[in-house]
């Protein structure tokens, strides 16, 4: 049995593990951009003993430019190196504006769905605040965040790391995953396999994480 039926938009733990393995494998097969690292599976440990069943997916070291840095780089290219001081200035300001993000996908036993946890830090390792993270969010998410401060993106305790991470609230996930999976008319077993890829297409957009389209091609 590859996984439980996902007719109600939820996913079993076995289904999550299977779907995670499929995502890791698929991600390696497609040619992702150089700036996107690989998804890796991280087993969690309790009382020092690693668990064979429980773990989470991690995509770590994703570089994101702050607003405007892309333009600065373009201008730098156009300058033809005429002014050495100007070039140094561009490079410095560009690196200062780089944010590095870690994304974790953790299974929620309560909601029976994956949950996205993420955090960002500057090049010096300083953790980003919510206001700083807003620079990397798409405008749609900024709008929802201003309307639903407490129930959209909040800082919650990471289930495996016992530290605060930003998270997207999972209470509505099964509802929209049900709608999403209803559209794709594939066998039940394959739905479980594709669950995380489909989930990522929505969740990635919400946090400004671009997912390569090749992930969804056969």
């Amino acid at each position: 049995m590859g996984g439980s039926p996902v007719g109600d938009g939820t996913l079993s733990l076995d289904g999550f593990n299977t779907s995670a393995a499929a995502l890791v494998k698929r991600w390696k097969e497609i040619e992702v951009d150089d700036f996107l690292p690989d998804w890796t599976w991280k087993p969690c440990s309790k009382m020092g003993a690693p668990s064979e069943v429980e773990g989470y997916l991690a995509l770590e070291g994703v570089y994101r430019g702050c607003g405007g840095s892309q333009e600065q780089i373009d201008e730098n290219d156009n300058s033809d190196g005429a002014d050495a001081v100007a070039c140094d200035t561009w490079v410095q300001s560009s690196s200062d504006n780089v944010h590095v993000y870690d994304f974790h996908v953790v299974y929620s036993y309560s909601y029976k769905v994956p949950v996205l946890y993420f955090q960002g830090h500057r090049s010096d390792g300083q953790l980003l605040t919510l206001d700083e993270i807003k620079h990397n969010l798409p405008s749609n998410s900024l709008k929802v965040l201003s309307e639903s401060k407490w129930t959209f993106i909040t800082r919650e305790e990471h289930p495996h790391l016992s530290r605060p991470w930003f998270t997207l609230h999972p209470c509505a996930t099964s509802d929209w995953m049900k709608l999403l999976l209803e559209e794709s008319k594939v066998a039940i077993e394959e739905q479980s396999l594709r669950y995380l890829s489909a989930w990522l297409s929505v969740v990635g957009q919400a946090v400004g994480l671009k997912i390569p389209l090749e992930l969804y091609c056969n």
């Binding site: 407490w150 129930t151 919650e156 530290r163 605060p164 209470c171």
Partner: peptide, 20 residues
């Protein structure tokens, strides 16, 4: 200690933690 504890903005944070 913001690297250990989730942020707390007083009663409002507690209320929403409870409701969630």
């Amino acid at each position: 200690p913001s690297e250990i504890l989730s942020p707390c903005e007083g009663e409002e944070s507690v209320k929403w933690s409870y409701m969630n």
